[in-house]
Simulated assay, not measured.
Amino acid sequence: MEPNLAPKTMANYEMFARLYIAPALGPKRLDKLTVRDVQSWLNKLRRSCLCCDQGKDAARPENHNNPKRRRRCCAIGKCCRSLPSEWTVHDAYMTLRAALSNAVREETLTRNVAANVKMSVPRKRKVKPWSVDEARTFLESARTREDPM
């Protein structure tokens, strides 16, 4: 059945499923998934280095002539401890919960075990805008380094 979701929602679901859910819970049969499995996955996700788990540094091309293009952390044995934010963990959980709810609705599963996991909503970060001097420093730095972004 074709999902009736906004394109951005589908893209986010796909990304969270590919990067966070499938690698950890993919081998487990959905009808054998337990609340403990989901809670263990969330606890592990909070403590896992994204760079190590997803091979981000290893995917960086090796270029010894350009220091910006060198592998510099996890691929060379120096874990950078790039932990997911609480919002990333929350969104990954909500994606799993939505997928299991859909499976229950389609009568593929009898219950949604993720619905029984307690998950608090993270606090929103207070954004402190840059001062004029901070913005000027940033832009001058980008111009000096010829940063294309």
Rank of each mutant, 00 (worst) to 15 (best):
R36V: 15
V38L: 06
Q39W: 04
S40Q: 15
L42Q: 06
K44S: 09
L45Q: 04
L45T: 07
L45M: 14
R46T: 08
R47Y: 00
S48K: 05
C49H: 07
Q54G: 04
G55N: 08
K56L: 15
D57A: 07
D57T: 06
D57N: 14
A59F: 02
A59S: 11
E62Q: 12
N63L: 10
N63V: 11
H64Y: 08
N65K: 12
N65T: 12
N66H: 10
R69D: 12
R72N: 10
R72M: 10
C73I: 04
C74W: 01
C74F: 01
A75S: 14
A75R: 04
I76P: 02
I76T: 12
G77T: 11
C80I: 14
C80M: 13
C80N: 07
R81E: 12
S82E: 08
L83Y: 05
P84D: 03
E86P: 00
E86T: 09
T88W: 01
T88G: 00
T88D: 02
T88M: 11
H90G: 04
H90M: 06
A92C: 09
Y93Q: 05
Y93R: 03
M94V: 07
T95C: 13
T95S: 09
L96A: 04
L96G: 06
R97P: 05
A99W: 03
L100S: 06
N102H: 14
N102M: 11
A103T: 08
R105C: 06
E106I: 05
E107G: 05
E107S: 11
L109T: 10
L109P: 00
L109R: 07
T110Y: 09
R111E: 12
N112S: 09
V113R: 05
V113W: 00
N116E: 15
V117C: 11
M119D: 04
P122A: 08
R123Y: 03
R123S: 14
K124I: 09
K124Y: 06
R125F: 02
R125L: 06
K128L: 09
S131H: 03
V132D: 14
E134A: 11
E134I: 03
A135I: 07
A135L: 14
E140A: 10
S141V: 07
R143M: 11
